[in-house]
Amino acid sequence: MKALIKITLKNGVLDPQGKAIENALGALGFDGVSGVRQGKLIELDLAASDAPAARAEVERMCQNLLANTVIENYSIELVN
């Protein structure tokens, strides 16, 4: 089973990189772009085949290492 973990900055946390991307898009002529936020995608393979157990394990990984929950949110998607 594969897990896709999407990590994004929390709402209200300023994202200077997202802001720079937004400005660059504007400079390239892409008008009407706003709210650009940059994040990370982490992909990993799990030996577990039981989805609830796998999700619980990935949840612990996010809490302990993958995300910094002071500033980041995460979402987990499991793919067979």
């Binding site: 300023l14 200077p16 910094n68 002071v70 500033i71």
Partner: peptide, 11 residues
């Protein structure tokens, strides 16, 4: 210690 250190505002 509490909090986090993010990318400098100027990048």
């Amino acid at each position: 210690l509490p909090g986090a250190l993010m990318r400098n505002a100027s990048l």
